[in-house]
């Protein structure tokens, strides 16, 4: 019995690429801010240069610092294609971001994709962002 079980367990992790949002990840801007639109049209989506949490891996609702058209801008991750799906956490087909300023106000005034419902829990931080969103999932 012990021989069988020790054979079953591997000595090292064999998980494949986990598709985390971390530094050097390219994100898709989903609002109508000027700089965001220009970046997406030019074919140079923003690149994450810092993730504002302890783990340095961004999840839904986390703030990130991005390099976009030569400028540094902050953003909120509103869509993530995690490899490992969790119950009741929506899995998007693309890693989406909404550009914000330092106080949490969005730079654009329209959002083109549905946002995760878990964002509504952070009402005090992202009040304006929630108000311009049209759809929650």
């Amino acid at each position: 019995m012990s021989f069988f079980t020790s054979q079953m367990r591997s000595a090292f992790s064999t998980s494949s690429c986990l598709l985390h949002i971390q530094t050097c990840t390219r994100l898709r801007v989903v609002d109508n801010s000027k700089i965001g639109k220009e970046a997406m049209q030019a074919g140079k989506p923003p690149k994450v240069i810092h993730v504002y949490n302890k783990k340095r891996k961004a999840d839904l609702g986390d703030r990130v610092l991005m390099a976009i058209r030569g400028e540094k801008k902050k953003g909120v991750v509103v869509g993530a294609k995690h490899k490992v799906q969790e119950v009741l956490r929506p899995r998007f087909d693309s890693n989406n971001v909404v550009l914000i300023d330092d106080s949490g106000n969005p730079l654009g005034n329209r959002i083109y994709v549905p946002l995760p419902m878990s964002l509504r829990a952070k009402k005090d931080q992202y009040n304006k962002l929630i108000s311009i969103a049209t759809r929650f999932v």
């Binding site: 019995m1 012990s2 021989f3 079980t5 020790s6 367990r9 000595a11």
Partner: peptide
């Protein structure tokens, strides 16, 4: 605990 058999120091 579950019998893990002979393990190297690292694991």
């Amino acid at each position: 605990t579950i019998d893990r058999g002979f393990l190297g120091a690292k694991r």
